[in-house]
Each structure stands twice: as C-alpha cells, then as structure tokens.
Amino acid sequence: MKISVIGTGLIGSQVVRELTAAGHDAAGHSRSTGIDLITGDGLDEALRDAEVVVDVANSPTFDEASVDFFRTSVPNLLAAAQAAGVGHIVTLSIVGVDQVPGLVYYQAKTLQEDLVRAGPIPYSIVHATQFMEFVVAALEWTTDGDAVRLPSTALQPVSSAEVAATVAEVAAGPPLHGIRAIAGPEIYALDDLGRVVLAAKGDRRHVVTDETAGLFAAVKGNALIPPEGTRLGTTHFRDWLRSR
C-alpha cells in the first residue's frame, strides 16, 4: 500500500519506519522535502498515487496563529488528497481536545478534526495523550531560576513510539470514520511528573506547584484523561526516562 505521511518530526519519522517495516510503500513529506501546507505547493506530487495520507504535521506555534494554520492547511491537504484519489486520511489529535476551551491550541486542533470529519475523504482520527518527550520539554517553559513552576494537571503520558505504532496500524486498516485513542499506563499530576524528571536527571532545580503556570493552567479536572476502554501503552514513564 502506498502511504504518504505529512510531517517528518517526532511522530512522522517513526510512522514511516513502522509502515515500511510492515511492507508498505511509505514516504514522509514536509517543508524540507518541498511541500508547503499553507500554499499547497508540492502536495500534488507528494500525494501522487497514494492510497492513504497520514497527517501528523503540526502548527509551528501554540498561540492564535495555530487556528489559522489548521484553517488553511487542512482544506489544502483534503483538496489535494481528493484530486489524487486518496481513499483514507488519518489525522493525529489529542485526548480531551474539545474539553479545554480556554486553550487556543486545543481550539485549533478541534477545528482540524471538524474539518476532516466534514471533508470528502474517508477518515480516521487517532487521539493520543501527551507524549513523554513533551512532558520533559514542558519543564523548560516554566523554569524561573531554580524553580520549575507546574500546575497539578492530571496527565497520562504515552511514549511517542506507541503513538506512532497506533497511527501506523490505523493507516494500514480501513477508515474508522471515528476515533481510536492511545494513552500511557499511568496517571500523574504534572507537578509530580516534573519532580520525577528532575530527580532522574540529578537536576538541582525544584518544582513549585503553581496552578497558573504554563500551557496546562487552562485545563480543569480530568479533561486530558482518556475515557474508559482506551488502549493503554505498556511503557511506564520511569522506565522510559531510564531508557534515555
């Protein structure tokens, strides 16, 4: 099966490897290979003869510009996919994305999903919880001297490898016309996750619980915890940290 993967970052590169290992003709496409989702340049060539397109491209920012990114990029991709005769589009999104109205980036991802559902291509949406790599990066966004300020937002972090495997599995199957979700095996408070990371790295900074700090300050309750029946990965956060 010929599969075009749009986005060659953390997830896209792993999806291509997974699909290739399974015997599919998979290729990754991004700005570095000559496509531009905003102008549409290069999409026709990237999708030529593709049976499936996997969209794991992301907005370069998490602010208001992310809404414009998806408002423009998704119709461009859908139009090119329809012109190429693509029979299945797989889109990666986020568990609880429609439950956090105060977070502009989540509004943008909700718009992305709505456009895909309303589009002309049979679709599948994969919902994932926060990547373990993302949790580590988030510590740097709210560092204030020796303190890392984090809210106690409940998260269920998942390894990017297990997300990529799920996306590849969905891409190789028939359109779901719905959602498949993947989450990590454990629930943590984000501030506690920060303490785990700092301890594992021997980092002398300390975590201060601050419910107003960072991207996840807008999240209320268990909005980012997946529903019952969600497939759970087997990689535990502490094991993942040790492996790195």
Rank of each mutant, 00 (worst) to 15 (best):
S4C: 08
G7D: 14
I11Y: 12
G12W: 04
R17N: 08
A26Y: 04
A26S: 03
A26H: 04
S32T: 03
T33S: 11
D36A: 08
A46E: 07
R48T: 14
D49A: 15
A57C: 02
P60C: 05
R71K: 13
S73W: 10
V74T: 09
L77W: 12
L77S: 13
G85C: 12
G85L: 11
V86K: 15
G87Q: 10
H88N: 07
V95I: 14
G96E: 00
V97H: 14
D98R: 12
Y106C: 05
A108Y: 09
A108M: 14
Q112H: 14
D114P: 07
D114E: 15
A118Q: 10
I121W: 04
Y123A: 05
H127G: 14
A128R: 15
E133K: 06
V136F: 05
A137N: 09
E140G: 15
E140F: 08
E140P: 06
T142G: 07
G145M: 08
V148C: 07
S152Q: 09
S152R: 11
S152A: 13
L155Q: 05
Q156M: 13
P157C: 11
S160F: 12
E162L: 05
E162Q: 07
E169M: 10
P174F: 07
H177D: 04
R180Q: 13
A181I: 00
A183C: 02
G184A: 05
Y188G: 01
Y188Q: 02
D192V: 12
L193M: 01
L193R: 00
G194Q: 09
V197Y: 04
L198Y: 00
L198C: 01
A200L: 11
G202S: 01
G202C: 01
D203L: 01
R204L: 06
V207T: 00
A213L: 04
G214I: 01
F216S: 02
V219N: 13
P226F: 11
T234I: 03
F237Q: 06
